[in-house]
Design a protein around this nucleic acid. Structure first.
Lengths: 353, 353
DNA sequence: CTGAAAGCGCTAACAT
DNA sequence: ATGTTAGCGCTTTCAG
């Protein structure tokens, strides 16, 4: 029984042992064409005896399909991504398609390399959460190469591809109105995304998600004739220390914010850490909103008001749309916006005078 | 410039356009053998003009290498896994190797299917965080097929492969002694892993991690001549409601625990939720320890005492060991145990009388 | 239903 | 340094 770690059995081997032709063996093993019960039985027996394992590469060469999709994300550690990936993998597994993941770490060159590598592997489709909104030539190249592409969570400029995203603008407007109704005029925002401050209303950032949020939140102020406090928007807060530095800078501002929006869970954690260290009380001294439905948001004091989006479903949908597009030279499927809701808890209160 | 989404350019196409033989083109494109500067230039120019993209499948067929590794995890959403995956992907990317992930959801059949699929894809190595300790025939089959295997976080029976794990037994002993020194004799534990309760000291569970922890924590009691409260060990708490049910059952026990160990962050969250809902005070009424270094553990009240392990490094190491084993028929590399430390915060106090 | 034979795109001898 | 020529393992006509 010592199957040495040598050459794996091939269709030819199976055919020989089963006493049929290679074509017949291939037909039963590959489940195509037709074959007699006798042949089928013999082939299966032989395959089992040799512990035959089909060579996916050979199949890919012939069919042009690799039964795999690529996923490129800016950040794998982001808990939101894990949930989306889980959704992607669930539909992938159900369809017998494997999932190849690559990280871009917000770096365009890494994203380029990842796309290149996945294209070489001839993935059947690509789900990408682009590093930047404003440069997408490489993604477009992949698209033109005939690989179906689905954008997840963020748009990219000039791409005629399906985008699975949630209604960040809607959530932003709700937040803006909510804060305004409570008398907040100084609202700050801290984001991971690298962009040059100060942000000016109407300006594009490199992230469609950030642009949507900023435009919506501060836009409601502009519409109400109130000067939006966009100078309180901080970018490029990637590390724990960088985030804390930005939060501190905001608090030390001459005219500090009375409300703070954390663009994700990691930032939320640092915001709370800094506020706690400084003895700033939420929501008495400052209100806090977080753009992530972190499971711990209800456990801190006070429970955090957060934006909730159906991340798992979005992952599933991205995969479904991607898979549906395989082999379809068809039109770009339009995916409706997913909801993004503000869940009110206790971290937002009236603005202090 | 309308490169239609048709057939991709091949080495042959490039060779023709460059006016050289297929072999020469292949040599410069594949960066092997030798070639003249002139040829190199011509080929590169032609390749660029045709936006040539090497076909990884074809290469795999010839070389037997796919430049990719497979990762199989029980649970992709687990934040710990995301961090490990990040480490794996970092070394993968540095080595030009892509990462194919598959989830087993604690299901042996899914794990089997995942292994099968990855083997068919001829991944160069496999990193597996096994669903169960006690059945590993399928993993062993992969191993015998000649694919290097590295186990991540948990062992599996009968496998002669490198295991990247942390010192759960050590952490468990520290916990046991710590709790004992504070007068706790009724120690409860809630775990995700499905196993039949009641647990008896010395017994194997389906998870090497759980076995190590249980044996260590309760073993220190047995050694001290104190009856270990293993009837307070709860398993199979996968969903939020299941976890809450188990925690409640523990609190409603005739002789309830004075200390509770949560086997991961998800369980920690539910433990806190239930305790808070019941108005049980930590650590006055009950002490809590969590087996995960969740970033929010310092933000809750009181800050949680947790077990910390170098998850990212473990991921990196798993990938390094896996990659090092590719093509090496060599001996199984022995990986030293990673540390697992108990970080004392304020959720553990003396046992109430 | 089954067999023979021609590729898929690339690598790897082997010549030249 | 470069060209020729076999394959790698499978799918897929095309005959029979």
């Amino acid at each position: 029984m010592w199957e040495r770690s040598q050459r794996q059995a091939t269709v030819g081997d199976v055919a020989r042992l089963a006493g049929v032709s290679k074509a017949t063996a291939a037909r039963v093993l590959g489940q195509y064409g037709s074959s007699s019960d006798a042949a089928r039985a013999a082939v299966h027996a032989a395959a089992a005896a040799l512990s035959y394992r089909p060579n996916a590469s050979a199949k890919t060469m012939n069919t042009g399909r690799s039964e795999s999709i690529g996923v490129i994300s800016r950040n794998v550690v982001n808990p939101g991504f894990a949930v989306a990936l889980d959704g992607i993998m669930a539909v992938g597994a159900a369809a017998g398609v494997s999932v190849v993941v690559a990280g871009s770490e917000y770096d365009l060159d890494l994203e380029r390399a990842a796309i290149e590598s996945l294209l070489n592997k001839r993935v059947d489709a690509l789900i990408v959460s682009p590093a930047r909104w404003d440069v997408a030539d490489h993604i477009d190249a992949a698209h033109r190469a005939g690989v179906p592409i689905v954008l997840l969570e963020r748009r990219a400029t000039g791409l005629e591809v399906p985008v699975v995203q949630s209604d960040m603008a809607g959530a932003g407007r709700v937040i803006g109105r909510h804060l305004r109704s409570l008398g907040h005029t100084r609202v700050g925002m801290v984001s991971t995304f690298p962009h040059a401050a100060p942000y000016e209303l109407g300006e594009e950032t490199g992230s469609s998600v950030m642009t949507d949020r900023l435009q919506a939140v501060y836009g409601t102020y502009a519409e109400a004739g109130i000067r939006p406090s966009t100078e309180l928007v901080r970018f490029a807060a990637r590390t724990s220390t960088a985030i804390q530095r930005e939060v501190s800078a905001l608090l030390d501002h001459d005219d500090p914010p009375t409300a703070l929006i954390a663009s994700d869970g990691q930032i939320g954690i640092e915001v709370l850490t800094v506020l706690r260290a400084r003895g700033v009380s939420i929501p008495r001294d400052i209100s806090v909103i977080m753009f992530e439905d972190a499971p711990w948001a209800t456990l801190v004091d006070p429970p955090l008001t957060v934006v909730v989006q159906p991340t798992y479903e979005m992952g599933r949908t991205a995969a479904e749309v991607a898979l549906a597009a395989v082999g379809t030279e068809g039109r770009v499927q339009r995916v409706p916006l997913f909801p993004a809701e503000l869940v009110l808890r206790d971290s937002v209160g009236p603005a202090p005078r």
